[in-house]
Amino acid sequence: MKPFAYLRPDTVDEAVRARAAHPGAAFLGGGTNLVDLMKLGACAPDLLIDVGRLPLDRIEELPDGGLRIGATVRNSDLAAAPVVQERYPVLSQALLAGASGQLRNAATTGGNLLQRTRCAYFQDVSTPCNKREPGSGCPAVEGVHRDLAVLGHSAHCVATHPSDLAVALAALDAAVEATGPDGARTVPVTALHRLPGEHPERDTVLEPGELITAVRLPPPPPLAHGRYRKARDRASYAFALVSVAALLEVRDGVVHHAALAYGGLAHRPWRATAAEEALRGAPATADTFGRAADAELSAARPLRDNGFKVPLARRLTVSVLGALAARHR
């Protein structure tokens, strides 16, 4: 682990200016992932700009009925916020499905979205990894990849994004507010994370130096029910093999509104637009739900050892949508 400097700015502007002045710097949130990666040598910033205590720790109800979540709101606080539990239960469920109590106490909203893949090769600096060292190769394609991507991967990278929170936010049409040297902008969560393509070293569309300051949620669809479900190897403290975040509104037995996103399948939270298309206006039956999942998952290209994720995603989809539809009866 190489020595690094540490800075704790008081304002967003100060943080962004400091980052702009130090190309080798990194923003530090709760540190639950970045500090691990620094210990492993997988990241080696020479300056840590601690944004974890910036005054971005509020959850505000917006006039339009939406919610603005400050980037430093801790995962455990967000999950426990009554407004979140009441109006965005899928978000609370996703948070509580992630990590452990101790980690959720430390992890921030912004940091959670920007956590890195847990691909074993990315974390092991003695092995090649295109994400860590562009051009060095990807041993996961032939090596150990049970937990890795089946959708949207490339020959250069088959990593998955590990966040549960991001999956729920993708289904909720959330957007992140980011501030950089060129000012502030808003990016939909579904457009925040990239697919690896030829540049797996870039996880997101954020420019170096841009800082997430908040996550903005539109008002929840008024009559939709939501649910997050995660399949995993042990009952707690395990990343998703596959997870699904779903919102469903059924009117007169027909799907009126559906939003669906997957975790554990791709380099980004996977908003299932093809499935949603198949759902809209269709009868709310198990058949429909299965066909919708198939519409999305027909694009899957499993690797040697992770083909199970496709039927697992399908089963989760049918089960979760079925349970949500039942609540409309």
């Binding site: 847990r118 074993a120 190897d233 042990r234 009952a235 707690s236 395990a238 990343f239």
Partner: peptide, 10 residues
């Protein structure tokens, strides 16, 4: 995190 010894929930 990756070698899954059982946790209390298991």
């Amino acid at each position: 995190a990756s070698y899954h010894v059982p946790v209390c929930a298991d």
